[in-house]
Each structure stands twice: as C-alpha cells, then as structure tokens.
Design a protein around this nucleic acid. Structure first.
Lengths: 203, 203, 203, 203
DNA sequence: AATGAATGAGTGTTCATTCAT
DNA sequence: TATGAATGAACACTCATTCAT
C-alpha cells in the first residue's frame, strides 16, 4: 500500500512536471524556433532547472522530435476520425480538409513549431516562397477576372500551387521516375481540373 | 589605358575567383547541407583561404542567400520566358509547369540546397511529410480504382496534396483571414475540380 | 526491552543495507571504474534509492575511500598475521608475499577497483607501463639465455622492475634526497643482488 | 618564392604557438593535474584563446596523451642510448638505471604529469601506498640492524618493494598464469637475491 | 529511515568571423 | 588582394548532491 501510494506520489509529481515542461517547450519553441530556443530558455519558462529538462528528454532534438511526431500523430488521428464519419470519397476529402484546418486553428502553436521560424534556412525559404506566391496570386487573379479560372481566393490558391510544386519537385529530384515533361503534364492537369472524375456535385 | 587594362585584369580575376567560389559552394552545400557545410570546407573546395571567402561574401548566410535568391531568380526567369512564348492562360500554366520541371531536372544540385538535408529539422519534416504522403497516396489510389478520381500517378498527386496543405496552412496560421470552414471548402473544391472554369480542353 | 529490541532491529536493518550497498558498490566499481560508476548505478545495484545512499556515505569519494582503505586494511592484516606465524626475517618476507598473492587471488574484484580501469588516465598509464614491461622482459630473457640472470619468469620480473622504478621515482621527484647517481646505484644493486646479505638459503 | 616565404611565415608562427602551448600545458598539468587543469587554464597560461588550443589538439585527452607518450618515448630513448654505450648485461642495467634517474631529475615536471595529482583516485592510491611503504621501511630497517639485509636506504627499498608488488599483482590479476604460491616464491627470491646469477662483481 | 525528483554549477568543444602580415 | 592563424562567445549536457514528502 505504502509503496503504491509512494509510487503514485512520485508519478504524479513527475507527470505534473512533464506537463509543465511540455507546455513551456511548446510556447518557447513556437516563439523562438528550434535554433533560437535554448535549453535554458525552456527550463526557465517551465520554472525548472536545466538538469530537470534532461530527466524528461535525453537531448534537445528528442524534445523537438517528440513534439513534431506528436503533432503529426494527433493531426492524423483527427483526420482519420473525420474521414470515418462520412461516406463517399469526395465527402471524405471534404471532411479531411475540414478536420485539417480546424486542427490548425486549434493548435496554431504546435504548427508554428513545425513550420517554425528562428532558422536562417526557413526564414529564407519563406521569403522565396513568398515571391512565388505573390507572382502566382497575380496570375490567378488575372485568370479569374477573365473568367477562365474558378473564383477562388487567389492567395489561397497561389499558396497551394507553390506548396504543391515545391513538395512535388523536392520528391521528384530524388526519384528516377517520370520525365520532366510527364511531370509537367500531370501537374498541369491536376491544377486545372482537379482530382475528381466527374465535375458534378459541386455544392 | 594601362589602368583600364589593369582594372580589367583584376576585375576578371575577381570575377573568376567569385565564380569558382560559388561553384564550390554549390557542390559543398548540396552535399552537406547548410549546417554541416563549414566555411572552411567551402574555401578548401574553392581552393582559396578562409579569409578570402570574406572578401567575396560578408557572411556565410549571405552566400547562402545569394545562392537561393539566384536560384529563385533563374527559375522565375525561365518560367516567365516560357509563359511569354504561349497564348492563353491555361497554356501558360502548362508552359510554366514544363519550365519548372525542366529547370529542376537541369539544376538538381541547386534544388537540393534549397530543400536541403543535413539539418535535424529538415530531416524530421521530410519524415513527417512522408507519412502523410504515403497515407494520401493510398486514398488516391483507392479513388482511382473505384473510378471516382482521375487516373493520375498517385505518388505525384499525394505529394502535391501534402505540399499544398502544408504551405497553405503555414500561411493561414499567420493570417487573420478566412475561417477554417471556408478554407476547407476552398481547398476541397480546388483539389477536386481544379482551377479551370470549364472542364473542356483536356488534351 | 522493547526499545532495545527495536534499536537492534533498526541497527540490524541498517547494517544489512550498508552491507548490500558496499557489496553493490564493489561490483559496480570493479566493473566500471571510479569515474564511470555513477551514484545512480550503485544505488540501483543495491536496490535502494539515491537518497538512501547518502544516508550511509556522505560523498561518493567517501565510499571509494572506505572501500580502498578497507581493502588495504584487510590486506595488511592478512600479511601481518602471516608474518607473525613464522620466524626469521627472510621467512617473514616469504610469508608476507604468499599472503599478498593469496589475498589478491581471493579478492580480485577489490584489487581491480584499486588498480581500476574506466579512467583515461589509468588506461594510458597502463599502456605506457606495458611498453616498458615488454622491453624489460626482452632484456631479462636475454640475460637468462646467456646465463647471466637467474631463471625467473621474465614477465614477472619485468613487471616488478617497471613497478619498482615507477614507484621509487615518483617518490623521489618529490624528495630533496639522494642524487640521481646514488639512486641509480642503489636500485641497480637492489635489482641485481637483492635484499639478503648472504646469498645462501635459496631453496 | 613568395609562396615559400609565406608558408614559412605561417609555419613559423604555428610552430612558435605550438611550443608556447606545449610549455604552458606542461606547467599547468604538472601543477594542477589532469582533472583540475581546465582548457581555459592552459590556454590562458599559453596566452592564447581557447579556440586556438583546438587548432593544435583535437581534445583535451589528446594533449595529455601526446605529453605522456612523448615523455615515455624520450625516456626510452635515453635509456636505450645509455645502454648501448656499455658492454655487459649487468653494466647495461646500471647504465639504464642511471639514465632513468637523470631523466627524472631533468624532467621532474613531465614526470609529475604522468604520476600526477589532482585526481581523487591518485591522491588516494598515494596515501595507501604510503602506508605500506612506511610499514615496509620499518621491516627493512629492522633487517638491516640485525644484519640480515644489505645496507640499502630503507625508504628507497621500501618504495621499490611496494611498487613492484603493486605492478606485479595488477598484472597478475588479469592473467590466468602462475598460482599465488608460485608468484610468492618468485617474488621472494627476486627480492632477496636479485636478478644476477653470480653475487660477484658488487662494487 | 527511505525515496527519487530536482538542481545548477561547471566544462569541453565548435565555428563564423577577424586581422596582422 | 590573399592568407590562415587566432579568436571567444555560445551552448548542450553531466552528475554529485539536496530535500520535500
């Protein structure tokens, strides 16, 4: 009994500290980014000693890893659940997207860690992407004015186009897969006409 | 005259060294990534002294910045040019995509720098993205088998979907813009039906 | 009575824990060496809490000190006893040596702690000594073949010579005693002819 | 020419710093011992920056290693040379011993590093050894008074006996070699009668 | 008496940048 | 202009020890 009680007491304390640490880590990482967030900062924010940090995470990387993995895991679960609630592939996509953005809305902080600042590298990428997004947005707007494109929010679509291009190409350059021409064709069709076979059930 | 000739000689030498330096930097950065590429490595690869490096670039970041900006600039020019060659917004998109992938094919090294490894951070994101891509690819394949989706290469579409989601959401969480519901709606429509108003001129 | 019984019980418990702790410490220290043996390891091996360790020893050093002193004490007692059993100085030396090696045989673990690994410093010394021992062993073997030296096991004699030299010199460099020449003379004579006045009673 | 001159200039600078660093390291290590000598101390003593230290030695251990190995090497060379100068195995032993103690006299600092303080471990061993040495010295003195032992300086012989026992036993406990009884016999004979076959040429 | 969570001073090492030559 | 030796601030991590329970 005593032993059980003791264990529980220690466990409770540990769990409490763990929670505080995690919360502090989230805040600090979201604000400063991985590289600028020093262990000292995190420990200070959690109001614990530096050494204590290392009772919970073996390295700084490990903390970051857990945070990112946990976020990804949580997001995936939300999406899976949302998808399971509805019938039909198209409906599932709609549900997944909704879950995704709701998750983002509710966990801004976590996502800021994942897409985090505080890194020369990321800061730079952000700028470069921004350039392309701006450009894309103009083209898209133009297309909408001329009534060639659907009336989407141009910013959103522009970001979508840049994001998909970047990801696809960063995957592709490591591949010995399709030719540049095939890739371009695929992407063009996908962007213009989308995934759905029948252009019907648009709400 | 002699002065001019001298100046030219010096200028030529300077320019030559700068080029060698840039070339060496590309190689080293592509191989090791930003964080693992030390100034010493780059200088050694360019066969110049460390001190000399700083005669050409004020900081390590500056070099990286130039490299990335230059890449972005070159890419943008290629795309703009390609776009200018053809008529019609849809055609322009096709042309842009083609230019984009051709550029990627011809400048793998540069792109590897931009999407570079050698960074705990990026390695991690890569993994996380990979998880989502795998998942997405399965859904997409399923939709194609059931003839609900267009017959695209699933890998490509999956990467595209993950990339666009990540970019859009990372833009959105910094915004005070559309609600999660609106975003989800937009993205769903965009993914399903694409940008084009009329689903006609599919080749 | 009850009080005495209680005290005894507590004392007995305390003594038992102390013994377990000491035994655990011996094992861990012998295996890992002083520097690599963490208090946590020792406590875990003794199946007690870290804090409990400090109820028995004020510091890590104190534990080590006790262990070494205890070992030295035990060894000394064995030797003294053995010496007391026989008559004659030469016999006493023989008895002491015998007791010494029997103690070593029976307490390998303790001696390993004293001459312990797990220490950059000691590892290094060990190597350096080994070099000299190897060299000495060769000379000694040569002398035996030429029948200039007694037929001892060369390895043993070589270790003895290196060990005595190291100890003597490390004592001497702190001294303002005999000159180098005198020291050399003494050591040479000691090594060649030994301590005994008459070279008789060799068995 | 210019290149050669440059190289030489840099090389000269490097060599100079290297020497200063080495000298400073010797002093600091001899005074404080390995563990208490911080890189900062050594760098400060050499009047260089911390970073500079690492231009010459990859780690703190490496410095220590080089110092010890170098010392051992130098000592060995001196001894070998001295030995080569004379004929006869016994004479060679005498010469080696002389070289050894002269080296010690001339390089106290280096030897202090090797047998260094500043280490709980060593401090302790020193004490324990001292106990045994004191004891041994008494026995030896007694034997001399009774004219059973040669008239050696008791301190020296006592240190020699403790040193050889420690080294031999620390070698032996790692061995599957001779029995305790054999070891004791060997050591006794060696201590009493020495290495030489004929007890003649005593000066 | 026993526990183990918490502590934080202390240190080896890195590397972008500077500067005397 | 070119060099590379020198710099030192910065930081992650360790672990013996304390102390509230």
């Amino acid at each position: 009994m005593a032993t059980v009680a003791n264990l529980n007491r220690y466990q409770r304390r540990r769990e409490k500290t763990r929670q505080e640490l995690l919360a502090a880590a989230k805040t600090v990482l979201a604000k400063k980014g991985y590289h600028n967030a020093k262990i000292t900062d995190i420990a200070a924010a959690a109001d614990i000693g530096v050494g204590t940090f290392y009772l919970y995470y073996p390295t700084k990387d490990a903390l970051f890893l857990e945070l990112v993995k946990e976020t990804a895991q949580a997001l995936k679960e939300e999406i899976d659940q949302a998808r399971a609630q509805v019938e039909g592939l198209l409906e599932k996509i709609r549900a997944a997207n909704l879950a995704f953005f709701r998750f983002a809305r509710d966990h801004r902080e976590l996502l800021k860690i994942v897409f985090g600042h505080g890194n020369t590298f990321n800061e730079l990428l952000r700028q470069v992407y921004a350039t392309f997004v701006t450009d894309a947005a103009e083209r898209v707007s133009e297309g909408m004015q001329k009534e060639v494109f659907q009336p989407f929010p141009p910013q959103v679509v522009a970001n979508a186009m840049v994001g998909m291009s970047a990801q696809v190409v960063s995957w592709w350059i490591e591949q010995d897969g399709p030719s540049a021409e095939e890739m371009a064709e695929t992407m063009t069709n996908f962007v213009l006409h989308g995934l759905a076979l029948k252009p019907t059930q648009r709400p």
